[in-house]
């Protein structure tokens, strides 16, 4: 029985760029949902990051633009220096409010708002990273009936973030990075 999901929300930090390459290269070209990644890069230029990811991704990659709606079958990356949120109208919103746990964008903020805006119909994915951002957000996603997917910590380049997510939220699926795209294809592609 497939749970209805509107959007795939992804969080990662240290080692995240490589992990996103692997994930986005393995998605089915008919993937029917938007995928939105928050990655702590420290770089101001997310457009460059999008270009790099687009080289190996099977779907188009763009920076998440304020007031636009994430579209099915497309990948979005949060701009740096802002928190990314999803409005009840299904459009991206930005906030320049204070860092949350030293991070802006914060994965927790993104997960929490996406899950609230989609009435819980979110699949949250936590990948490699060196801090615990995303753990609370993933817990909220699960509480609201969404799906939690966590990269197996032993498989992650840095295990802190996935381990923190598992401790705070547990997971519906905990598996090595290479198996996450196939899982998403199985879960969501008809």
């Amino acid at each position: 029985m497939k749970r209805r999901i509107d959007l795939v929300a992804i969080g990662c930090s240290a080692g995240g760029l490589r992990a996103l390459h692997t994930l986005f290269a393995g998605l089915d070209r008919r993937f029917p949902l938007p995928l939105v990644a928050v990655c702590h890069t420290g770089s101001d230029d997310v457009s460059l990051l999008c270009e790099l990811l687009a080289r190996s991704a099977t779907l188009p990659v763009d920076e998440a633009t304020e007031r636009t709606s994430p579209l099915p079958g497309r990948i979005y990356v949060a701009p740096s220096g802002y928190h990314l949120l999803l409005g009840r109208d299904g459009r991206f919103a930005l906030s320049a409010e204070a860092r949350v746990g030293f991070a802006r964008p914060s994965i927790d903020v993104w997960f929490e708002s996406a899950s609230a805006a989609c009435g819980g119909r979110v699949a949250g994915i936590v990948l490699t990273g060196a801090n615990s951002d995303g753990a609370d957000g993933l817990a909220r996603i699960r509480e609201r009936g969404g799906i939690a997917i966590v990269q197996e910590p032993s498989d992650a380049e840095v295990d802190v973030m996935p381990a923190a997510a598992l401790a705070a939220a547990g997971a519906d699926h905990c598996l090595p990075l290479a198996q996450i795209a196939p899982l998403l294809n199985r879960l969501f592609v008809e």
């Binding site: 928190h83 949120l85 409005g87 009840r88 919103a93 930005l94 906030s95 409010e97 708002s113 609230a116």
Partner: peptide, 8 residues
């Protein structure tokens, strides 16, 4: 905008 207002 409600999403960020709600956070504050």
């Amino acid at each position: 905008a409600r999403a960020s207002f709600r956070r504050r």
